[in-house]
Design a protein around this nucleic acid. Structure first.
Length: 734
DNA sequence: GATTTAGACATTTTT
DNA sequence: TGTCTAAATC
């Protein structure tokens, strides 16, 4: 047995946490202090040294990425051969939602769910709510669907069912309650489960079924939780139930990095933990292995302004490093130019685009930077876009698959009844809805009833019959096929490809590619044997699509500058970090400045941002910024003043950045189009291939465009950046 | 049934 | 100001 492999890479405090006897443990792990390492080594320790069966291990995370990483690192440490997916090791490592889902599949009966229940994602849920409001005859402007959705989810996150709510005189509350009730009923009828419901249901399953509870209490001798500060009420309640008999709950978190309070996360869970588990031990990891001394000094000062912390101060034994820099930009354009210029300098000196991140408070801020990076020809990647499984074309294809799996899935039925368009109009759909509501049957059954009634117009009847037959036929044909063949069948036979190919809508080509990619994804989808219990491969795949929607585009190893929000930067690290838009009203955001609690969360966000950096931090703010079409003159962020002056240097403007004299309007560089082409537009040229328009200059016959050609041509190389006269170049818009 | 136009709206996000 | 969605129109 090789204990050294587990213990040697650890410092004293980490080792103490890893080797502590079984009990409740709270590890307060500062940024970059080896939090995941402790978790991974702790589990390895328990298995290898304490001879605990992997079967007895439960580890919970928030994201699939984190779960995957943890599993890989544990298996590497234990030298379990790679590629032996989850099954052989027997450990349950997953997200709260993933594990709740697994429990509900295994005990669908006791959870009072149909065995074929389907998981819906956020957009599915919104559709269901919209439809519900419609049936209830409520006006969408008075009852905005998003707000209703938010309300319902917030209730569920707190563990509150509609029936628990106390009657109030407040009309608004009462209506919301009625909607919540109706929503619960609808979900029960159609066998649909939203994300919050997964957690709530899993909690109720354990709470109300002592046999199930004691089974899992005995199975999971050790329960581990990552990012504990992000748990919400119901997640923590669930953890408490599971660990009630032995108290072996090992949680790792950082109160200073709690940035999800707005979606129900409760820092209080950390304080409550200490009350609920009186025999717990607290260990603080404060040695940071990521950042320079100056960066940590700045971060510590910022976070120290907050009240009511658990108290922690990061230190490092590596040197001071460079000073942090601050740039006061004239406006947001200037800010972007500055950042690009610095990126260039970094690349020229030492290298990789991957080292660099531009972090901002809100997604809208990415635009300026994308534009300037594009012009500069610097490769970049924006995080937080549409996920693969969230795309319309994919959702449509999945809806067909779901309908095949369960004809009574109303939400899928409605989604695709007229996609691709097959002549079934709003009128016919209304009729189907009416019958369904009237006889309390599914839309599918109602559609059959409607056809049989024979009082439809010939055209509508034909169209509807055609649709019903298509689905029936697909169901039969799919019967004995492999998963990917089923997907292929759907994609081909439903004419979705033709639909998107034909439509000249933007990104049609991309949509077709995505559908093809979906078939591929099905091929790659590895069937998790441990989960098999009640479920077919297709249903597994559908659940996977809902629960792991982001996983496909996850790791691109292209060498790119990374653009993302501060929130999505949590857990990552970069050598060079730009924290842009450091302005009052932007960061901290306007909505949080009046509320002490929310302001502290913004400050923690700033702390998270600074601690992402390993070597270098640049702050920037704009003295004037166009916001929602209005010119604003924000003040620098208060967080900048919370950084000690001795770790900061102010960067002065370079000569080439024009600072217009105040009375003269800023000179506009002629970037406007005179007609058909726009900056950023994709075009193709018969000789140079496809590319993107970087700049447009001149007028009339003199008009010329600069294009960055990105597709390889005959020689196998890309044509690169070229200036072309519009009058001569044969360009096609894409 | 597709295209156009008007209007709302605009932190942060994973599952 | 720009984007996205929903309704209006041909």
């Amino acid at each position: 047995m090789d204990i050294t492999k587990i213990l040697d890479p650890l410092n004293d405090v980490q080792r103490k946490a890893v080797t502590a006897p079984s009990q409740a443990m709270l590890v307060l792990a500062g940024a970059g202090s080896g939090k995941t390492r402790v978790l991974v080594h702790r589990i390895a320790w328990q298995i290898q040294v304490e001879n605990l069966s992997p079967h007895s291990i439960l580890a919970v995370t928030f994201t699939n990425k984190a779960a995957k990483e943890m599993r890989c690192r544990i298996e590497a440490l234990l030298e379990i051969p790679a590629h032996s997916t989850s099954a052989p090791s027997g450990m349950w490592i997953g997200t709260f939602h993933g594990i709740a889902h697994r429990l509900l599949r295994r005990h669908a009966n006791q959870a009072k769910l149909p065995e074929t229940f389907q998981v819906m994602d956020t957009s599915d849920q919104l559709r269901v709510i919209k439809r519900l409001l419609d049936t209830l005859g409520l006006d969408e402007t008075a009852w905005p669907p998003r707000q209703v959705q938010w309300h319902i989810n917030a209730q569920k996150d707190e563990g509150i069912r509609a029936r628990h709510t106390v009657e109030t005189a407040d009309g608004y509350q009462r209506q919301m309650l009625a909607i919540y009730q109706a929503y619960e009923k609808l979900c029960d009828q159609t066998g649909l489960v939203d994300f919050a419901e997964l957690l709530l249901r899993a909690h109720e399953l354990l709470r109300d079924n002592p046999d199930v509870l004691s089974f899992y209490q005995q199975r999971f001798r050790q329960v581990h939780v990552d990012e504990f500060q992000d748990t919400n009420t119901i997640q923590y309640a669930w953890l408490r139930l599971l660990t009630r008999d032995n108290g072996n709950l090992f949680v790792v978190g950082d109160d200073d990095q709690s940035i999800y309070g707005w979606r129900g996360a409760k820092i209080e869970n950390i304080y409550n933990f200490q009350r609920h588990y009186p025999n717990h031990q607290v260990i603080k990891l404060e040695q940071n292995y990521r950042s320079t001394g100056n960066i940590l000094k700045a971060a510590n000062h910022i976070i120290s302004v907050n009240e009511g912390r658990m108290g922690k101060e990061l230190w490092t034994d590596s040197g001071e490093g460079e000073l942090l820099s601050l740039y006061a930009a004239f406006n947001e354009q200037d800010e972007a130019y500055f950042v690009v210029e610095r990126i260039r300098a970094w690349i020229n000196k030492q290298g990789s685009h991957n080292d660099i991140a531009i972090l901002y408070r809100s997604n809208a801020q990415s635009r300026q930077f994308e534009e300037k990076l594009m012009i500069a020809g610097i490769p970049y990647r924006v995080y937080g876009g549409l996920r693969f499984f969230d795309r319309v074309e994919i959702k449509n294809a999945l809806a067909y698959l779901r309908l095949i799996s369960n004809h009574d899935d109303d939400s899928s039925f409605e989604r695709i009844i007229n996609t691709p368009t097959r002549g079934i109009g709003a009128k016919t759909i209304d009729d189907i809805r009416y019958i369904a509501r009237d006889q309390t049957i599914s839309l599918w059954k109602a559609a059959i009833v409607l056809v049989n009634q024979r009082n439809l117009s010939a055209r509508a009847s034909n169209a509807l019959t055609g649709f019903l037959q298509l689905v029936k036929q697909l169901t039969e044909q799919a019967q004995d096929l492999e998963l990917y063949e089923k997907v292929q069948l759907i994609v081909e036979k439903t004419k979705l490809i033709e639909f998107y190919q034909h439509a000249k809508m933007d990104k049609g080509e991309e949509k077709v590619e995505n559908l093809e990619e979906l078939v591929n994804a099905a091929k790659l989808f590895e069937f998790d044997i441990e989960n098999e219990e009640n479920l077919g491969e297709l249903d597994m795949f559908l659940a996977h699509a809902a629960l792991e929607s982001g996983d496909m585009q996850g790791d691109d190893f292209e060498d790119c500058v990374q653009l993302m929000t501060l929130h999505s930067a949590k857990g990552l690290e970069f050598k060079l970090v730009f924290l842009v838009g450091m302005e009052e009203g932007l960061f901290p955001s306007q909505q949080s400045v009046d509320d002490a609690g929310r302001l502290e969360e913004e400050r923690r966000l700033c702390y998270v941002g600074v601690t992402r950096a390993m070597q270098c931090v640049y702050f920037s703010y704009a003295e004037s910024r166009r916001l929602y079409g209005r010119e604003t003159y924000p003040r620098p962020s208060r967080f900048l003043r919370e950084i000690p002056a001795e770790c900061m240097q102010e960067v002065r403007i370079r000569s080439h950045i024009n600072r217009p004299v105040t009375t003269i309007a800023p000179k506009k560089i002629p970037l406007q189009t005179t007609g058909q082409y726009k900056q950023g537009q994709k075009v193709s040229h018969e000789k140079f291939g496809k590319g993107i328009i970087l700049q447009i200059e001149g007028e009339g016959a003199q008009e010329r465009v600069q294009i960055n050609f990105t597709t390889p041509v005959d020689g196998g190389k890309t044509s690169g950046v070229k200036w072309l006269m519009l009058a001569y170049a044969k360009l096609d818009a894409l």
